[in-house]
Design a protein around this nucleic acid. Sequence first.
DNA 1: CGATAGATCGGCT
DNA 2: GCCGATCTATCGC
Length: 202
Amino acid sequence: MIGRARLSERYFARHANEVAVSLIGVVLLVNGVGGRIVETESYDPEDPASHSYLYRRTARNAVMFERPGLAYVYRSYGLHWCLNFVCRGGSAVLIRALEPVEALAAMQRRRATKDLRKLCAGPGRLCQALAVDGSLNGASLLAKPFALYRRHGDVEIVSGPRIGISKAREALRRFGEKDSPFLSRRFSPGAQAVGRQPLLRK
DNA sequence: CGATAGATCGGCT
DNA sequence: GCCGATCTATCGC
């Protein structure tokens, strides 16, 4: 089925910008259900769009300041759940879309659609498909019910502005697999190839 | 304490 | 394109 090499604790002990890029192509499973990560976004304490902006701690974001390798799950717009991977120094990666790979039937049932393109295309949708909710907030990504497998093979990665935010719109901190049909939204035709420019744009 | 905005989504116009 | 669902944090009175 899938490449067997698991991610290590050290993997997450880097800044979210770096982790967000390297996660593209990684397989994420929750209780054996999931697929390849094709879209991510990065956030950190110096970023006005981040829940951890200025290191301000609340009941909701406390997990962001605990340690790398934890799941930060929060409720969005009162209805949907969003899954983040906590990285170094209060930074985190929002998991925005998966290419469905494992246990398709379970995801189709939970999402009430058979359309593979709509199963995990968006942070709220993928949480519904993988049954991620607030009970997993603070859980380790290196233990059950999570499983993360390194990517195998090449992936062409592009970057662009993040989706659905009003602050720091110009930062190119959304990353994805170029032309994947499983993205929450396509990248613009001229999207910047990752690796040809500095990642950090404040 | 009330109002409002927000890392969203699905249904409708 | 707009709207409503309705949780969390913040800001204003």
